[in-house]
Design a protein around this nucleic acid. Structure first.
Lengths: 121, 121
DNA sequence: CTGCATCCTATACGATACTG
DNA sequence: CAGTATCGTATAGGATGCAG
C-alpha cells in the first residue's frame, strides 16, 4: 500500500488515477493540452454537459495538484486563462494516446466523427 | 457529439474513457497486462479493496467491450483465466505510461514504494 | 466574466450472504 | 473456485441562483 495525502493507493497506476480520475479531469487536461490556453467560459462551452459546479471543482483540484495553472489577465472585468503546468504537460503522452485510441476505435467501427476537430456538440 | 451504444461522448478522449473509466478498470487491465494471465481469485487478491461485486461487474463489462477474454481451464473444479484481448493489448502504452508516471511521481516526492513490484498490500 | 453555495439525484461502490 | 443477488452507503455529479 502507498499512502499519499491521507489516501491509500494499491499501485503506481492507482496513484496516477488519483490525479486524473473521474469523469472530467482528463477531458479538461486534454482540452488545455490541445488548445494551450483557455478561459473558464471557453472550457465550459467546449465541454458540453459539464456543470459549473463540476468545472470549478475540477479546475480547483487540478490547480491544487499542480497540473494546471491560471493567469489573471484583467481584474475588471475579471478574466483568466488556464494552461497546463510543467507537471500537467508531462502527462501529454497520455492525452495524445487516449485521443488517438478513441479516434482509431471510431474509425474501425465506422462511427461518424470529424477528423482533426476535437470538439463535438 | 458522438453516439455509441446509446451513450453520447464529447470527444475521442471521452470515448476511450468510456471503456477504461471508473475506479477499477485500468487497474484490472494493467494487472492483466503485467501478469499476462490471472484467475478470478488472483485478480481479487492482488487488488486490495475491490469487492466481489465490483470485480465480477467490471470483468463482465471488460469482456462485453472485448478488452479481455476468458478461458475456462477446468469445469470441475471450475477454474478460469483472464487475459487481454488484442483490443485490450492495444491499450498497453496507456497502462505502461500510467504506471511509469505514477512511479516517477512517487520517486520525485520521496514516497516509499517497491521498485519493480507492482503490488502493494 | 469567473466562480461559489445550495440542494438534489443518480450511480458507483462496498459488505455480505449465497449458488453452481 | 467462480461468480451473483441484495441491500445499504458514499460520493460523484447536476440544476439553479447568486456574488465579486
Amino acid at each position: 500500500m502507498i499512502t499519499l495525502n491521507d489516501k491509500t493507493y494499491t499501485c503506481p497506476v492507482d496513484v496516477t488515477l488519483g490525479f486524473i480520475g473521474g469523469k472530467w479531469k482528463l477531458l479538461i487536461l486534454f482540452h488545455l493540452h490541445y488548445f494551450t490556453k483557455k478561459s473558464y467560459a471557453e472550457i465550459r462551452d467546449n465541454l458540453p454537459g459539464i456543470s459549473e459546479k463540476m468545472l470549478s471543482q475540477q479546475l480547483k483540484e487540478l490547480e491544487r495538484d499542480q497540473l494546471i495553472e491560471k493567469n489573471v489577465i484583467t481584474k475588471k472585468p475579471y478574466r483568466v486563462e488556464y494552461y497546463l503546468s510543467t507537471e500537467g504537460k508531462s502527462l501529454a503522452p497520455l492525452y495524445e494516446f487516449a485521443s488517438e485510441w478513441g479516434i482509431a476505435y471510431l474509425k474501425k467501427h465506422d462511427i461518424d466523427y470529424i477528423q482533426d476537430q476535437h470538439l463535438y456538440k
